[in-house]
Computed example of a mutant assay.
Amino acid sequence: MTERDQDSTRERLRGRRRFLAGLGAAGIGGLAGCTGLLGEDGSAGNGNGSGNETSASEAGFGEFRGSGPLAEDREELQGTRIADLPDLSGELTIYLGGGEGGLYRDLLARFQEIYPDFTVNPRESGTADAANTIISEGDATPADVFWSVDAGSLSAVANEGLTASLPSEVVDPVPEEFHPDDAWVGTAGRARAVPYNTNELSADDVPDTVMDFPETEGMASAMGWAPTYGAFQAFVTAMRLIEGEDATRQWLQDMVDAGVTEYNNEFLVSNAVADGELNAGFANHYYALRVQASRPDAPLDLAFTSGDAGALINVAGAAVLGASENTDLANNFLRHLLSAEAQEFFATRTYAYPMVEGIPPVGGLPSIDELNPPSIDLSELSDLQPTLELMREVGVL
């Protein structure tokens, strides 16, 4: 990227940074999308079958969409509709790594309501545990699908040669970087971001690169992070791959020396920023939305860095296991996860970035195309052990 392009990107992002504050109390308060269940009327949710463009007010999206102001006025959504896909019929064993507080289970339940002949046997655990179980089971695994909230765990399984190559009808709607080698496909995205307290900082106070944070006045001495959290470790892994081990070690040490505060997870980091305990922190983008859902007047906003590990876009995704005897059904299931209705579910209930064109993110978030993530193969995020050793060496873990 040229210096002129970088300057243009920075200016565009500065214009997008205050998206939460711009919504105001009326624009984001009362969100139920984080915890709401699926549709109450049990209807199948099929639309007009055009597959290209449909009004959000038509039957179908209402049974998948979250409630609250962020889910309103989402018209002219595009994408493949569930009605355009073959019916789901048969039985799948799905290893579910993570699950966004049960919301993924809700989506599975909705599919089973739509298709009475479709049965899911979910096995739930943490992302690393699920991946390690599949790797341990090898070709004897009973799993047909591995659906995980973390690209690193998907890549770990793929690197063992345990995933089937996905057909073009599954992966084509998704940007290439989110289906590396067609071994798995992204279903929902999350961007690294910097939640900051608007009473203490402005968007211009937040550096464009995380490497500058330790030396930036008002940042490192009042920053928070969650080093035991998987998303943070993926971020450090990306930094190690981009900047090198020595620079990453020095950055971690500089942040520790500057007095960064540790929290158990990034939702707590975002709450601490809103409380004024911190000026800023490191977190996935959707945690700020979740804080604002219950605290619409909180002095909280998001900034995005540019082109570095702090701008990493990670994904939840799904893979079909090579040992599965239900490959056709499993591939069809993945197509359902990428349907317009399911993508609207992820956007308005988990606040994730949709993976297909035609379904916009919520809350005035910049689109993935407007962000400037680093050029990194997400499959490399599975190389976590050197990151953990580095963090232990510095004393972060």
Rank of each mutant, 00 (worst) to 15 (best):
S67V: 10
I376A: 08
G90Q: 10
L107K: 12
N284A: 15
I28P: 06
G51D: 05
P373Q: 02
D301V: 02
L321P: 03
R190G: 11
S294Y: 01
A298Q: 00
A280V: 11
E380A: 15
G98S: 07
Q250E: 15
A191M: 10
D208L: 06
L321M: 10
A319V: 02
G189A: 05
S294I: 08
G47F: 03
A318W: 07
F61K: 00
R17I: 04
T350G: 03
G358Y: 06
Y351F: 15
L77T: 01
V315M: 14
Y353K: 05
E63P: 00
D172T: 07
F333E: 06
A274K: 02
A193W: 03
I134F: 06
M219I: 15
L381M: 01
E277R: 14
T248V: 13
S89T: 09
P122H: 11
V256H: 14
A21H: 11
S270A: 15
A323I: 02
R4G: 01
G161H: 09
G189P: 07
A311P: 08
S57L: 09
P354Y: 11
L300K: 03
L241Y: 00
A131V: 09
W225D: 07
L162C: 06
A191L: 14
L162N: 00
A226I: 11
R10A: 12
E58S: 11
S57I: 06
F213N: 07
R14L: 11
P296L: 15
S221C: 02
T209Y: 04
L70R: 03
E58P: 03
D117H: 08
F118S: 01
A340I: 00
E91I: 02
L162E: 03
M223C: 06
L92T: 08
L384R: 13
E11S: 12
G36Q: 13
F61D: 00
E137W: 08
P227S: 04
S339E: 01
L154N: 04
P374I: 12
F267R: 09
F232M: 10
N279C: 10
L23F: 03
V149S: 13
A191V: 11
V210H: 06
N52C: 12
T127I: 07
P167M: 09
G90N: 01
S202Q: 15
Y115K: 00
R110F: 08
G358L: 07
F111E: 08
